[in-house]
Design a binder for these strands. Structure first.
Lengths: 342, 342
DNA sequence: AATAAAAGTGGAACCGGTTCCATTATGTTT
DNA sequence: AAACATAATGGAACCGGTTCCACTTTTATT
């Protein structure tokens, strides 16, 4: 358990002042003779010196850390988002503090306190929808806040990066309508989430455009966590006039829904055509391969990181930025024509 | 962009010294009159004061951050590990800095430098297998290093948490043998990884116990990244005497292997019985549902965090700890009797 | 009531860097 | 060679907390 050398140890060993060592550490912060630089670097090497980030950050801390606050990381969508965000951040020399809320606003509040104490330069988050005052405070402090995947309408001044949920749900629904389906159901996220609301809006748009009747019984909201998706599925199957097609727009509940379908022995696409919002490699391996809405996670990550670092890099404009990227509808084999009712 | 209040601002506003405020901040560090405490807390509240972590850590920084260095997070196994580690850490008030190596030792080295500079109290990592000197240095510095899922034999003094790979592969292989298979193949991780080696060892043990002939052509190593798994699969299918059963023990390559099988039109389990090391919910939704080896990720996470914090909590024993948790073989429908050769 | 012990508080050094400013060494211009 | 700009360096304050120690006030002991 050796004690780590400090900048003063280095200075002493190299026979220079700490100021010089600091200049060697931060090229461009001042002139250093070439020979001196060499000697100092040598000493740092032999002493195994590593400048301590905590000390560096104390003085006008350069933005070197970014908070990533997600609902959870076991959800593959968030996992891949996290992966991309981390890679993107690393490529800019930024570190990522990963936190999860489990969709719990109490936990979210605690995590945000931690991030405030750390004085992170930016936060990328999937907000629960509450803790409005804390989000505001963060912005006041000069933290770059970016909501990804969802947003909070009551906080219009926050940057947002999402997929075009309305359009995604619209095109998925339209594809089903084009196949001749008239009873199209949707299982989406809770109506309290912008994601859920937008997807349902897109769904309704498509129905209207196709001249189909709307039936609120075919619109189901499922919570992000738990088995809600399965229950919603069961309810749909038990309807007097069950749907012949389904859009599963609540990413978190896709597997729960499919499990219920498998359990009920519903054949896809003969009895039910299905489109899911999910881009797991597994969707292609299912029987039949699923038609999916692919969310461009890499773009979400890239834009999020960029915005979360924008103020730091001085590109802060006055008004909030909203980035809406397009999802891709990938047709495979889980959509067919509706079976003629017997 | 308001400037944040400091402890001195609070002290001034409350009419006390900074020492008193600090004591209020750290209960137990010294006596404070009840009325004073109340007043100080009140001032902190109205001023919106949050102590700055960087400053706190400067002085004998309490272990408040933990590094989690994984290959990547898009792999669901690592994603769920990350999720559990973060939850476990949060429940102890510890933050997690997430980093990825992409299995690249150069990147790993850079990440480790960052972690050294941050003086994290512990690191949980899936090591690439190189950078031995850095790992040693980390330990010398007093950092709690824990290897999870894999280990580095050349570094026996590092704590390790893994599943019992030998036994897992053995029992999976034994199950196939018990079904009458005589040509059992395995696709595992690279032989440079302990995980890969152990799983192959368990596989061989099972063959021996069953009195089956070993054929090196049936043992394939696939790199963690890329399409290596698919190529290995193709090679196996093209054998003169192809296997009738397969263990896919390289978690990262499971989907690549299955994709190739689907593409080749190999029917499971009629033409090939399959067991995979993978616990994604999707495995249950496949046709047929896959027989899997389930890795107890929650246990891995819990033990890892505990060890990574052990020195901090003073429970440092002399010798390194090795935790080996048992995986669970879950039988579903992808294993059958070998088809009689025509 | 005198004395000892405990509680409450403040002053100031310290952690390990960065940075401003003054000072000295070196180089260029006329 | 004088005058001046520039390069290189060092001293010391500073960032925002923690902590040691000395000092004052309160409470307990006999």
């Amino acid at each position: 358990m050796q004690k780590q050398p400090t900048i003063r140890d280095v200075a002493a060993a190299a026979g220079v002042s700490v100021a010089v060592v600091s200049r060697v550490l931060n090229p461009g912060s001042g002139p250093v003779a070439e020979t001196t630089r060499g000697r100092v670097n040598e000493v740092m090497e032999t002493l195994g010196y590593h400048p301590r980030t905590a000390a560096r950050e104390l003085k006008h801390g350069p933005p070197t850390t970014l908070g990533l606050l997600l609902a959870d990381v076991s959800n593959p969508f968030f996992a891949r988002l996290a992966d991309q965000v981390v890679q993107e951040a690393h490529s800019r020399g930024i570190q990522v503090l990963l936190m999860t809320t489990q969709e719990d606003d109490q936990l979210e509040s605690e995590r945000l306190s931690t991030l405030i104490e750390r004085r992170v330069s930016g936060i990328i988050a999937t907000p629960t929808g509450n803790n409005l005052e804390i989000w505001k405070k963060l912005q006041d402090m000069g933290t770059d806040v970016v909501f990804v995947d969802r947003s909070i309408p009551a906080l219009p001044e926050v940057d947002v990066v999402t997929i075009n949920n309305i359009e995604s749900a619209r095109s998925a629904t339209a594809l089903l309508a084009a196949h001749g389906h008239r009873r199209i159901a949707i299982i989406s996220g809770p109506a309290t989430s912008t994601t859920g609301r937008d997807r349902i809006a897109g769904y309704r748009e498509a129905l209207e455009a196709a001249g189909l009747e709307q039936d609120d019984l075919l619109v189901r909201s499922a919570a992000f966590r738990g088995a809600a998706g399965g229950d919603a599925m069961t309810a749909l199957l038990n309807l007097d006039d069950p749907p012949t097609a389904l859009v599963v727009a609540n990413t978190a509940q896709v597997t729960a829904v499919l499990r219920r379908l498998a359990h009920a022995g519903v054949s896809i696409p003969d009895e039910l055509s299905v489109i899911v919002f999910e881009d797991s490699p597994w969707t292609e391996l299912m029987t039949p391969p699923l038609t999916i809405v692919r969310q461009p996670i890499d773009l979400l990550a890239r834009h999020s990181v960029q915005l979360a670092l924008s103020r730091a890099s001085g590109k802060s404009s006055g008004k909030p930025t909203v980035v809406r990227v397009d999802a891709e509808l990938i047709e495979r084999s889980s959509v067919g024509r509706p079976r003629v009712r017997t």
